[in-house]
């Protein structure tokens, strides 16, 4: 009998009502403001300047079937910048899995400077993000899940900005190649493993949590949650990467964690693979016994 893991994924249903209240009921004067904290990945067009991350807050003012997007703490260089877009139509999709508000073509100027126009502004606010409620000791993540604004826009010819969630859960398929104790090679496909990346933007490090870790069918026990602590985060032109070598994971046990040298991660890497940073690929080597690859997303849609 298949036993469902108690660490089952759920969508961020809590926030769905906030979005569904915007369902059109024929009243064009209906108003709502949604505010979310997010991380900006800012990529300067100057290739000599490395992309960087900064935390920020976006407000979405919805009135009727239009919305405006604003922020007051977008770091461009070393300065805080702000903008308010004009009204842009949005569409709302509600399903059992969650709610998504989608919009395109928001316009405006950063710092009201016509030389810094907003271009190619696309985005969505989604509540259909994965989440596991079980607390992990020593991890400072987002306590209460909220919907995620996934934005991408250009600022003139100067910058490209993408937003992502600093505490994201990734689900997908892990394929592991292993050699058993008899020397036979095998592969194992597992859709139960969930990965969580919690990024400390200040320190540019990430804690990666691997839930339901099982890398081979004959592995004695499934590990409820193992943590790879303080891995370096590196920005790239169109995304970011988390890597690490020779990591002894910590396993959640009781109210604390215990090192587990039986599963040494000789190498680990996580790289964003989509333009809006919601999709990642991972590779890892556990003690030269398990070679794994993962591809997955943190938003259902």
């Amino acid at each position: 009998m298949k036993i469902k893991s108690s660490l089952a994924l759920g969508a961020v249903a809590l926030a769905a009502p906030l979005l569904t209240s915007c369902l059109g009921d024929g009243d064009d004067n209906r108003e709502q403001t949604l505010v979310y904290n997010i991380v900006n990945l800012v990529t300067p067009s100057n290739a000599d300047v490395k992309p960087y991350m900064s935390t920020g807050t976006y407000s979405f003012y919805l009135k009727g079937s239009d919305l405006t997007v604003s922020t007051a703490d977008l770091m461009l260089g070393t300065s805080k910048s702000s903008f308010v877009t004009g009204e842009t139509p949005y569409t709302q999709t509600v399903s059992a899995l969650g709610t998504v508000i989608s919009f395109n073509g928001c316009s405006g100027n950063v710092n009201q400077d016509s030389s810094l126009p907003l271009n190619n502004f696309s985005g969505r606010i989604t509540s259909a993000a994965y989440y596991i409620s079980t607390a992990v000791p020593g991890i400072t993540g987002i306590a209460t899940p909220t919907p995620v604004p996934v934005l991408k826009y250009n600022i003139g010819n100067e910058y490209t900005v993408r937003t992502f969630c600093r505490d994201a859960y990734y689900a997908g398929t892990t394929t592991t190649h292993y050699t058993d104790k008899d020397g036979n090679a095998g592969s194992f496909e597992n859709k139960d493993i969930v990965y969580r990346a919690v990024i400390d933007v200040e320190k540019m490090t990430a804690d990666v949590v691997i839930y339901n870790a099982q890398f081979a069918p004959q592995q004695p026990q499934k590990i409820t949650a193992m943590i790879l602590k303080a891995l370096p985060v590196e920005t790239m032109a169109n995304g970011y990467r988390i890597t690490g070598e020779d990591i002894i994971p910590e396993v959640v046990e009781g109210a604390a964690t215990t090192p587990n040298p039986k599963y040494p991660f000789k190498k680990f890497s996580m790289t964003t693979t989509s333009d809006n940073l919601d999709q990642v690929a991972m590779e890892f080597n556990v003690g030269d016994r398990y070679h794994g690859m993962f591809s997955g997303v943190y938003c259902l849609f």
């Binding site: 009998m1 036993i3 469902k4 893991s5 108690s6 660490l7 089952a8 339901n212 026990q221 499934k222 590990i223 409820t224 949650a225 396993v251 959640v252 046990e253 009781g254 215990t258």
Partner: peptide
């Protein structure tokens, strides 16, 4: 109990 120790799969009461 095994879950407290960090191993195994917990059962969903509704399921089992």
């Amino acid at each position: 109990l095994m879950g407290i120790m960090g191993v195994g799969a917990s059962y969903d009461i509704d399921d089992v």
